[in-house]
């Protein structure tokens, strides 16, 4: 089943073309890496997919629904979650409260001026934190966590929305090498368990080739090749554009 279908989207910033007629598809349960040098258009693509930006032309479908004109909340309701390049959590909340917020938002329970928010959805939040190995930190303030742990909290918040598709913008940026592998292994395990599709961007090729089912290579806003890791590794265009530098 096709979860995400991108049909020829283009976007330019005051004349500079950031995305040029980009098309690709993502199947249920697939884990796809989008790679490319800085400025290739990866973050622009993510922002369009999640409704923060509008494409100049082209269309995006999540399932059967066309999301090209939808805003972020509507896209979220279709089951598209997101984590950011730089982990963004709520500083003045505890770890558990962060996840509770995501759960409350997902269930539309925020327009409530009466209940004690700290007591709502606590159980589900703890369950999610346990899956991510963060339960021991539940009562700690987010402001004192290590960066790797913050990334896990962010992931828990994205999962709280019960997504069918998770967009992860450089999920391991800014982390130590060992933490990176652990986090990606966790993402893959959770994705398989939950039948979740993942689209992620990444600069660490070890992670990309170890975890992605398929790879999309972008350069200057264009998709220059796609396929399984083995196919991309062998493709001369890919070697020239990106991997060539890596093999020196």
């Amino acid at each position: 089943m096709t979860i995400l279908r991108v049909e020829g989207i283009s976007k330019s910033y005051s004349g500079a073309l950031a995305l040029d007629n980009l098309s690709f598809e993502l199947q249920a349960g697939e884990i796809i890496a989008m790679i490319g040098p800085n400025g290739a258009g990866k973050t622009t693509c993510f922002n369009i997919l999640h409704g923060q930006l509008r494409a100049d032309s082209g269309q995006v479908f999540v399932g059967d629904a066309c999301t090209s004109r939808m805003d972020t909340p509507a896209i979220l309701r279709l089951g598209v979650g997101r984590t950011f390049q730089i982990a963004a959590t709520f500083h003045s909340f505890t770890v558990a409260e962060n996840v509770q917020m995501a759960l409350l938002a997902r269930r539309g329970l925020l327009w409530n001026l009466h209940s004690q928010a700290g007591d709502l959805c606590r159980k589900e939040a703890d369950q999610l934190l346990e899956q991510l190995g963060m339960l021991a930190h539940a009562a700690r303030a987010c402001s004192v966590l290590s960066y790797g742990d913050l990334k896990r909290v962010e992931l828990a918040m994205a999962l709280a929305g019960d997504p069918i598709l998770l967009l992860m913008d450089e999920p391991t940026a800014g982390m130590a090498p060992r933490e990176r592998l652990q986090l990606m292994a966790l993402v893959v395990r959770l994705a398989r368990e939950r039948k979740l599709s993942v689209l992620f961007t990444e600069h660490d090729m070890d992670i990309v080739f170890a975890h992605a089912d398929r790879i999309l290579l972008l350069e200057q806003g264009r998709l220059i090749c796609q396929g399984t890791p083995a196919m991309v590794r062998a493709d001369p265009r890919a070697q020239r554009a990106y991997l060539g530098d890596n093999r020196d």
């Binding site: 923060q52 979220l76 963004a88």
Partner: peptide
């Protein structure tokens, strides 16, 4: 207040 970007991303 803490993170408008994250708040929007969870649907607020």
């Amino acid at each position: 207040r803490d993170s408008p970007m994250r708040a929007a991303a969870i649907g607020i």
